[in-house]
Amino acid sequence: MSPTVGAFWYVFLTGAAVTLWISWLALLLGGLVGVIVGMMRISKWVALRWLAVAYTEVFRSIPPLVLFFGCFYGLSYALQLDLSPFAAATVALTATASALMSEVVRAGIESVTHGQWQAAYSSGMRYDQVFRYVVWPQAIRVMLPPSIGVYISTLKDSSLASIIGYVELTKSGLLIRETTGISFEVLLIIAVMYFVINYSISLVGASLERKFKYVH
């Protein structure tokens, strides 16, 4: 690392911390919304099912960049809201993450076999008991690995917050690039930092996955 760029180490690290924070927040909120939408997907009411499908498909189909733009400029003008880049980025990231999470939740629940429902029902459990004691504990294990994938994907999407001026890792890099006039080295450092963060997360995820297998 050249001394010119190295002098900005603190800016790089702060940027990385902001990236971790906002993507974690979006994963949390997206997980909450995703559980609700995912449960709607398997509801017995057709209207709820369709609503959930529409939600998932719309937010899976619109590019996150377009969502950032829509949240930051669109909502600000349309609702006369002065949304901060942070608020807009959180909303946009949550929308994308929740669409992904709703699929993860649905797949998790559907992975629990029919026989499990039958066995639980035939022991006299109600729907909510079947869910709580038999289906959910199994679904959670299935949901874990793809949730790690959603986190990594959300973390990468958070780079797009740079477009609306939110200073996370990518924007930090772009600012350093403007200040120093050095492109390649700065961008490479940013890329390496993303790689290290995401690869570490995927390693942690893999070890959690092993730990979560039924046989210990």
């Binding site: 026989g115 066995a119 199994q138 039924y214």
Partner: peptide, 12 residues
Amino acid sequence: GMIFQSFNLYPH
């Protein structure tokens, strides 16, 4: 009490 062909024990 019901006993199934495929056991249907709760794997977790």
